[in-house]
Nucleic acid binder design. Structure first.
Lengths: 218, 218
DNA sequence: GTCAACCATATTGTCAACAATCCGTGCGGC
DNA sequence: GCCGCACGGATTGTTGACAATATGGTTGAC
């Protein structure tokens, strides 16, 4: 990731700021002063400027005229909305994936699932979370649905912070493993409707977990 | 629309270019030379530049480094993808709308539907198409689901050109009216699942019409 | 006649300076 | 002490010039 592909400064700036936000180096609500970012990432202010415009369009940043930009804060209500939208789109992707998946692709999904089980036994929640992302991404990729892929990627970026927490709900990891198992089984067996329903159920579970967190921390 | 709300030039530029694309004044595939647009819309090149960046993020424009931007061409396959994604998200919105709709809101939907029937009797397909957009937008508004609303708006913008054609398929208007009737009925009766299914069926019908066009014109 | 290298032009990417706007601060009036 | 108000610093918005890059045509060799 450090190579950055000899692109124009503008693209670098976009990727750099985006990554910093997703990595939590720039916190929600924090002001994004153009000059500061410009110095921090060693790119011109113009590059930062268009990067911020793109990030605003993407929903990661909000800005007001003459008052600057800041990292958008996503509350629990919006996090639920984001997950609902993701559920709708990933269910669509699962549907397509179930129609198109080759045996090799199905096996790749099972392989990821086995790794998740392993991490679960090892008590490695962070590892599970990363594999979870990989699993979902792989499924979307198998679906070949580029429009859904683009939208889902944007939603995932917005939800990173909250998504991370749901795995801490007691009993959630086991449930998640079981839900994933059903999704993969449906995809591997070429049963689109079943895959779609299973994906909806899965993200419904995540939403429920998120809401439970909300109630407990209030 | 001529007033433009005393905003910054950048915002105006974004809205102007966007509107020109949606209105078909800038055709798919057409090059978007910054200087030309700058003169045409009487705004600085910097404003055009960030407008193009935003539009690219939105999926209405594509650009390559040092080679400029052009209006993105959306083929039939992608148009289908867009409609599928819309179907998933609008079904979600319909679900929420059915939970939240007040009697007044339901009546507003029926009113739009009656106008559509009227236009249909008058043979005014363009008017129907506009009312169709209004109906969908109103439904999304009722749902109160801002995340879905944002995504749907973007998808609708990308699909304008194709969407317009589906209404020309023989028998499609009547079918559309019936599908809308079911959606509204389900929303008015507070039956989320039914509303969701009806919306999916409706946009499924649009997709089928679009595919039929594809087959006939090839 | 064909092909490759080269050059002119058009266009985008970058930069630095300037103008416009917002925000906090201190001043004066009451 | 409290409120309105002007002022100054900080930050964004805009402009114009310049550098970097792609494109298309031209020239020359073969």
């Amino acid at each position: 990731m450090a190579v950055m592909e000899r692109a124009t400064e503008t693209q670098s700036a976009y990727l750099l700021v985006r990554r910093a936000i997703l990595a939590g180096e720039l916190l929600p609500g924090q002001r994004l002063v153009e000059k500061e970012l410009s110095e921090r990432f060693r790119v011109g202010r113009a590059a930062i400027r268009t990067a911020l415009a793109r990030l605003e369009q993407e929903g990661l940043v909000e800005s007001e005229p003459f008052r600057g930009a800041r990292v958008r804060t996503i509350g629990e209500a919006e996090a639920v909305e984001i997950l609902e939208a993701r559920a709708a789109l990933e269910a669509l992707a699962a549907h397509h994936a179930a129609q198109k998946a080759t045996p090799e692709q199905a096996e790749a999904l099972w392989a990821i699932h086995r790794q998740m089980e392993e991490r679960h036994r090892a008590g490695d929640l962070l590892g599970m979370s990363e594999l979870n992302s990989l699993l979902h991404r792989t499924l979307v990729e198998i679906s070949g649905h580029q429009t859904a892929a683009r939208l889902i990627e944007g939603l995932r970026a917005q939800g990173v912070r909250h998504q991370f927490h749901t795995i801490l709900v007691p009993g959630r990891p086991q449930q998640s493993l079981e839900e994933h198992r059903r999704i993969i089984a449906a995809v591997a067996a070429h049963r689109p409707e079943e895959a779609e329903a299973a994906m909806k159920a899965h993200l419904g579970g995540v939403i429920a977990a998120l809401k439970r967190i909300g109630r407990s921390t209030l």
